[in-house]
Amino acid sequence: MVPLDYYLILSAIIFAIGVVGVLIRRNLIIVLMSIELMLNAVNLTFIAFANSLGSMDGQVIVFFVMAVAAAEAVIGLAIVISVFRHRQSLDPQEMQLLKW
């Protein structure tokens, strides 16, 4: 039986990798992928707690997170494609038309 700490530390590591991806990568699609990584880490935490507390609520909440993740991926990638169509670039630092 693997103790709870292992899962929590593992998901902390995955979450940190996702944060690094969002911060240092300059490609919108990779940023979206890193956000998916972070959501997966959070889901793993939920399931680990659900398992160790013997409760089903954690597993149900994971489904809501998955629904939001799916919606986020769909809308995010649609935005990525239309941004690419207009500007021929995916660098988030170049998207500053609204910057004051």
């Binding site: 590591i13 995955i14 990798i17 990568r25 990779i30 890193s34 990584l37």
Partner: peptide
């Protein structure tokens, strides 16, 4: 973790 690192 390895594939997450490759992703990033």
């Amino acid at each position: 973790v390895g594939s997450a690192a490759v992703v990033t």
